[in-house]
Structure formats: C-alpha cells, structure tokens
Design a protein around this nucleic acid. Structure first.
Lengths: 317, 317
DNA sequence: CTGTTAGCGCCTTCAT
DNA sequence: ATGAAGGCGCTAACAG
C-alpha cells in the first residue's frame, strides 16, 4: 500500500476500498500518524485557519463572542488564530497574515476599526466577514445586530416609564456601533420632541463611571441614562452607587449587549440583547462558504435585538 | 536577482548585499509579496504557531490572561491558535494539532484538566508549558502562582480581623488550583486550631451564589467566607445581597485572582492577586525557548501572590 | 555576495 | 481500486 493511497484513505476519498481504508486508518491511529498540515496547505492552497480579530478582550462581550465563534469554526473544521493586538499595529500584521496564506480568511469583530485597517479591507484580501460592526460601503459581508432598532426599544421603554430628562453615554463616536445606537436612540426621542444630553467615551467601565458622575453633577440631572454598552452601564451603575444615588428609584440605567454580568444579582441591568450566538454562527458560516469558493455577496445580515427588562429601570420619582 | 536571494533578503540574512536587500524589500512591499507560510513551514519544520488552551472563557480571568499571553507571544514572533472547546473533546484534537505540526507547542492554561488530556501531556508531544495549573510529577515546565501561600494570606487576614466561624467555597476538587488553595487555607486555620466548613463547586458565579445561600442558611452561619476564585466570590457577594446580608459588616468575603471586576465599585472585593502578566510573560518565554531547541527543564516557576484588601472584609460584628 | 540544485510531505493528474 | 510521477513555494546546502 503506497503513500497516495494512505492520503486518500485518510481523507475518506471514495476511490479507496472500504477495507483497505479501514486498515490504513487503524495503522495511522496506532502509529500516531497525522498528515503534516503545512505540506497539505502547500498543495491544497488552504490552511484551515481563520484569523479572528477582537480588539477589546477586556469587554466581556468579546470572550462570550469568541467562545461561540470558536466552537462554530471548529465544527466547520477551521482553527481560530487569534489577533487582539492594539488596533494601531493590527492592520499591517493582518495583511501579512492573509497574504502569507497562514489563514484562509478573517472575521473582523472589533468595535473600533481605524483608517489603516480600513485600507486592509479595501485591498481585496480574500475572505473577510465583518461581525458586530459594519463598514458601510465596503462591499464586505457583514453580520450585525439591529443597533438602531435596539436603541429605539430602549428609548421607548424609558419614555413609557415617564422619563423626560434623559441622558446618554455613548461609545467612541468613531465607531459604527456607537453611532448607530446613538442615532437610533435620538430618533426615537425626537418623536416625542425630546433630546438627550450626550456624553462620549470609550467602551469602558471607567467611561461609564466618570460619565455618570458628570451627568449627576449637573444642575438638573437626568432621571435616566442610556449607555452605549453594558460595560459602560455597569460603570454608570457603580458611579450611582458610589454617590448614593438609588437605582432605579432615582436613576434608571439601560445598557446594550446583555453580557452575562448584566444578569447578575448585583446589577440586574435592563439592557438590549444582541443575538450573539446566532451572529457568531452566521458569521462563521458565511466565512466558511466564502472560503469554499462561494464569492462574497457583500451581504449585510441584520439580526433583531431584544429589550431585556430587569431591575435597573423604573418610573422616575 | 533570483528567488533564493529574495528569500534571504526578506529574512535579513547577512549574506546579501545591503543595497540589493533594500531594493528587494522595496519591491516586495510594492508588489505586496509575502512569503508563503506553509511552504516555509514545510522546510523549516516550524510553523510559528502555538496552541493556547483555555477552557473557561466565561471566567474573566482567562481573557485577561489571554490578552497578555497573546501580546507576549506576538512579540516573540508567534501566533496564538486558540483552543477553548470543552475539555472532553479537547484531548484528541490537541494531539492531532500538535502532531500535524500546525503548532510548534502549546500553553495549557486550563484550570481543569481531565485524565484524557493528562495522557496527551504524557506522550511527549514536543513543547508544552503549563500555566496557572500544575500537573505534579508530569515533568512539564509549569508557571504557577503560590496558591497555597496566597490562601494562607487570606486565612491570616480573616483570623486577624477576629473571625472564628469561617467557611470556604472551593473550586472543583479535581483541579490542582482548588486543592492547593483549599489546603493552604486550612493549614493556616489549623495553626489557630480552627477548621472551615467547606463547600465544593465549580469555578462559577452560580456555584458561589448557591454555596453562599447554603452557608447562610445554616444554624450558625459563618462570619467569613473564603472563595476559590473571584467569580465564586462575586456570586457569594450577590447571594448575600439578595438575602439582605450586609457585606462586610455581617459577612466578610475573600476571593482569589484579582480580576478587573473585583476592583469595581459595586464589589470592592478583598482578594488574593496572582501576578498574571508576569506569569503569562514567563510562560510565553519558556515556551519560545523550548521551541528554539532548549530542552524542557521540567521547571516549576512559582510566583508570589499578594493580598489585596478592599471593602468586602471587616471584623465580625 | 549571488545563482544552482535538491528536497521538505503532501495531493493530483495519469496510468495501470 | 491502487501505483507512479510531478510540483506546490520555500529554504538549505553548495558552488561560482
């Protein structure tokens, strides 16, 4: 039995006799033989790796995403090569990575994405799927949540509770998600002739904390705050607690994402849920399909969001 | 100028003339040429990838670890291939991965590690470094924190505050970290002739929550609880809050790890800090050295832990 | 200093 | 249903 036969047997090529195949597999297992991946990649022009770009692992949202993404990729026979460096340096290494064909494609799941990395996307570097965030007009496949719609749900919720002095602490204004959420929120408020006083910050606990302190120190502080994501919201909640402001009786807080923490007893945060597992799954599949040769459709998949009402919101006193 | 010259120039081989090298690099950049990684691996017998095994991404500790690990590996010219599947299925795929030479080595940073994966370690699969957890007698390089010592610090702290009815909620008894911490804690209590009533659970918020409820429901509930890690501690804290038990006045809680959350205003958890960045850095370097041919020393690097006193501990009332 | 010649381990025609 | 050649893109030895 020769080498090519082994190769075929191990890949379940039907052209090999069932019993020889069985014998070969048994022997491979016994000898601990596994095909050399680099040699295989060299000839198949496929590595079976995909790059997963996540910038802010400190936001619990990303690990949650990563977990699903990873297991989905795995079930598609793909390995996740992690890239989470600071954005600034990312662009170049991603290009190299993709060009070096170490990875067959990439899932870009960074909230922020600067000009440099934009460029990388424009050069047609094979298979790329944007996850969580979109780059309008990039012509790339994208899987995102209905950020504007979700934010509108949050706005309506606060309005229905009777809030009129409403503030918001958004994410970085140069991020697509932050803009979408802010716009969706404002649009809904405008329908009631209202506007929110808006603070910008990054997607961090600290930004929420400081932002909330500022808002509470104002002359007529808001009775409700809409936050750009859950981590900001939890920061705001902490700030309220630190200054003795009771939530939700004196202050309502709404987040975005519905990370696991949001449901913890200490927080019970009202928030907008993104269908994270579904999003990750879709992104992985689209990428896999693109890698398989299906050409990218430049399709935008917008999945619905959902308001999860917990204990951080109530009618203003 | 021929192909091998290009190869040499791009690898900064000194045997190529500085000005030709410059010209070649310029051209490569202009043409967007990057060496094909699979072809390179095939001949160098080195992929530049390392597997990073983390099982519980839902524990914020791991993302924090991953972040440092990733950036450290990156600066060593290595890529992190993520493996975070459920342990059960992990063993086999890891073996394949290592054998297929897709990765040059692995960093095993899973708290839990079952028999099957033990086997994988015993077979001498090239370079492996254990991080966070040790497998005593495995002869593997390991970078761990002084778990027993840290737990002892926690015990002493509680004793000095005057606690006598002390409980602990440990991690899974089949994990090395949980055992080390529990033993270190008990040993210190014994020096004062005390013992803690111990509950076992997994390393989850839920386990802490339920464990704490159980302890509080006892006839003479403890005045202090030592938890196997921060996530458990936060769960316990949540349980205390849910039942109206004031922390720290009625109940002191100590965690382990010092994850970012522990410092948040809502928690201000007293905990034992592991020198996470240092640990990750060391592990990455040891692995890199091993990959470079330095044979594994089977060295155990035990880094010191430190008690971080915040607002979840006080003298019993 | 640069070019020439092999060969890494596998998959893919093509022939048996 | 299996075996025999060729080549994927690169690096490593050896010339020149």
């Amino acid at each position: 039995v020769t080498q090519p036969t082994v190769s075929r047997a191990l890949r379940d090529d039907p052209r090999v006799a069932p019993k020889t195949a069985a014998r070969i597999k048994e022997a491979a297992l016994r000898l601990g033989y596994v095909p050399h991946s680099a040699a295989r990649s060299l000839v198949t022009k496929r590595s079976g790796n995909v790059a997963v770009l996540v910038a802010e692992l400190n936001n619990p949202f990303y690990p949650e995403l990563l977990e699903v993404l990873h297991s989905e990729l795995d079930s598609l026979g793909l390995h996740a090569v992690l890239l989470s460096e600071r954005i600034q340096t990312m662009g170049e290494s991603v290009v190299s990575l993709l060009r070096s064909e170490l990875v067959d494609g990439a899932i870009v799941a960074t909230a922020t994405l600067d000009a440099k990395t934009e460029v990388l996307l424009r050069e047609q570097l094979g298979s790329i799927v944007l996850l969580i965030r979109d780059v309008p007009g990039s012509g790339r496949d994208a899987v995102v949540a209905d950020n504007a719609g979700g934010a509108a749900l949050a706005a309506r919720h606060l309005l229905e509770l009777g809030h009129r002095r409403i503030a918001s602490i958004t994410g970085p204004p140069d991020t697509w998600t932050a803009r979408e959420r802010a716009e969706g929120f404002e649009r809904e408020l405008e329908r009631s002739g209202l506007r929110s006083s808006t603070t910008h910050g990054d997607y961090s606990h600290d930004a929420g904390y400081k932002g909330c302190l500022d808002l509470l120190a104002a002359d007529s502080p808001p009775t409700a705050i809409f936050c750009g994501n859950d981590v900001i919201a939890l920061g705001a909640l902490d700030a309220a607690r630190a200054t003795g402001v009771e939530v939700p009786s004196q202050l309502s807080i709404v987040g975005f994402d519905d990370i696991a923490l949001a449901g913890w007893e200490s927080f019970r945060l009202t928030t907008v849920r993104q269908p994270l597992p579904e999003m990750a799954r879709r992104a992985a599949r689209i990428l896999a399909a693109t890698i398989e040769g299906k050409e990218p459709a430049g399709e935008r998949l917008v999945l619905p969001t959902e308001l999860v009402v917990r204990a951080s919101t109530a009618a203003p006193s």
